[in-house]
């Protein structure tokens, strides 16, 4: 079937403003939006720029606004989309070219919450044991693929780029609630301020945007609670 795409193109060398362009490509209904982009780039206009790597919803590199909502192009089926399929870059980051945005600030925030195991006790002889319940506690937030869909769907972030954003809080949550980790205090001190969890206004856009179905707002709420209680 023939599918119509409208893409918000922007080339920093040529354009002063982004502009819409229309493309028609031949696709199967079971194809993904990403396949459409590949067809456009491969057969019609090689200058089209976007990120993608795994093409299977694992690497998190192809989040973009598809028909008004943040999604992964590789997880959105063409047959489920209304035509024309309109694609824009994620909101809130600097657009480098077409759908490629500057993720630098995003990963800076990610690093700020120290997303790695911080040892509190002496290193055990063998592995660190953890019960199934303890693992379950932070299971939801381990699923994050750092695509940025949540952060760039958040009005608090759009208006205030200083906000650490849902993705970084999800990552912090993954370690704060890990029984093996000892760095909760350091992470909470990063999050316990105006640009941290308290800028979350529970808008729930992040929950809707997350391609991994993570209950992001709940995770943020749990971090707020831990701060209010003064510990895990």
């Amino acid at each position: 079937m023939e599918v119509t795409f409208q893409l918000l193109r922007f080339d920093p060398l040529k354009d002063r403003q982004p502009h819409w362009e229309t493309y028609r490509v031949e696709l199967e209904p079971t194809d993904r939006v990403l396949d459409g982009l590949e067809a456009i780039k491969g057969q019609m206009d090689g200058t089209l720029a976007y990120r993608r790597s795994c093409a299977h919803g694992v690497c998190g590199s192809d989040a973009m606004i598809i028909n008004g909502r943040n999604r992964l192009a590789c997880k959105a089926l063409v047959k489920n989309m209304k035509e024309p399929i309109r694609i824009e870059p994620m909101r809130g980051f600097k657009v480098l070219k077409d759908f490629v945005v500057d993720m630098g600030p995003f990963f800076e925030k990610y690093r700020a919450v120290k997303p790695y195991l911080i040892e509190k006790e002496a290193r055990p002889q063998k592995e660190r044991l953890q019960s199934q319940e303890e693992r379950e506690r932070f299971d939801d937030t381990t699923k994050c693929i750092l695509c940025g869909a949540c952060t760039t769907s958040c009005p608090s972030f759009w208006f205030n780029a200083g906000y650490v954003g849902p993705a970084a809080i999800v990552q912090a949550h993954r370690f704060i609630f890990d029984s093996r980790d000892g760095g909760a205090e350091e992470r909470l001190s990063v999050l316990n301020n105006q640009e941290g969890v308290w800028r979350c206004r529970t808008v729930f856009n992040c929950v809707e945007a997350c391609p991994r179905g993570i209950n992001v707002t709940r995770a943020i709420g749990e971090v707020k609670k831990v701060i209010a209680k003064g510990g895990r």
């Binding site: 316990n192 301020n193 105006q194 941290g196 308290w198 707020k224 701060i227 209010a228």
Partner: peptide
């Protein structure tokens, strides 16, 4: 401080 206002 932000925690305090939130609780308040």
């Amino acid at each position: 401080m932000e925690l305090f206002t939130w609780l308040f």
